[in-house]
Design a binder for these strands. Structure first.
Lengths: 161, 161
DNA sequence: CAGAGTCAGTCTCCTAAAGGAACGGACTTG
DNA sequence: CAAGTCCGTTCCTTTAGGAGACTGACTCTG
């Protein structure tokens, strides 16, 4: 199937996708985030093929999103935990949840709710501007070329923006 | 490859992934968002196989994320534009950009910048709580079961959360 | 101390999806 | 009327994902 590599594109979306772009990774991240940390648990919770799970975990560890940590020496056992980099990726998950709740949840309502530590309220995430604090949706911005624009990663094909 | 279907899981992440979970879709969305609306343009900008592009566009239109709109009758020509549902998905892209900028941009800096219409500043998106307005990252919330929990879509395998 | 159980993978076989490239059809332009 | 543009479709090859059996190290139980 020789999947196209995204990592060379001068685009943060493409580069993010390169890390968690294939379908299982976000779900693995979600599971680790809620405390499903071990191979066997992940496999049975997700119903993912063991082979693919191994590949994904290895990749996510290589990318510094997860850390493989031993919790027992004898027998050798490990669990996967989020790094800081991985924890920040979970913000992406909360935004996915927001969209999924709005557009795919249907009658039954959202499958999970979030209670914000700071205020104790059931709430959802809202994107705001880091400069002025007002709502900042994709339709509220102009896109301009930045310093890293047009600098492909390793001099290969001129794709992306 | 018989990809596992995520749409049955009682999880908004899985259901969102079902719509844009495979690698090209977010990039297609990005391109349409920045004004690359036509088949030929998308194909050459992304370097995606024409076959896969056709499949993705068809799927995204079916899902109501894009709309296929004729801009010429003779010859019959169309372009793809974002629906409201699709535009809201772009918020997800801005969050991906944020993460990609922080963790993968490197020396060169971010490839694109966003200027917020409301304040005119170059800024990035920041997730806050819809209830109290303070920052709301994945680490700032408790996850609780919601009304749609454990209600699988069509009574199949008991997966997800 | 034999046998069952647990955990974390690895291996093999099969199928289906992605990539690449050529082709087609409807129309426009020189 | 030949060349070009746009938007796909078809065919072929490569390879990734799914299913599930198997392994190996160790523990637990009667």
């Amino acid at each position: 199937m020789q999947r196209t590599q995204f990592s060379d594109m001068a685009c943060s979306i493409a580069r993010t996708l390169d890390v968690i772009g294939e379908p299982w990774s976000p779900l693995i991240l979600r599971d680790v985030y809620v405390g499903i940390n071990r191979f066997e648990q992940l496999q049975s919770d997700l119903g993912i093929s063991r082979k693919v799970l191994t590949q994904r975990l290895t990749w996510l560890v290589e990318q510094g999103v997860l850390e493989r940590r031993a919790y027992s020496d004898r027998p050798p056992r490990h669990e996967y935990v989020l790094t800081t980099k991985g924890a920040e990726l979970c913000d992406l998950l909360t935004v996915m949840v927001r969209w999924g709740d709005r557009w795919t949840a249907g009658e039954a309502g959202p499958p999970v709710l979030y209670r914000h530590h700071a205020c104790g309220e059931i709430a959802h995430v809202e994107p705001v501007c880091s400069a002025c604090g007002r709502p900042m949706h994709a339709t509220d911005v102009d896109v301009l070329p930045g310093p890293g624009a047009s600098a492909e990663r390793s001099g290969s094909e001129p794709v992306g923006r």
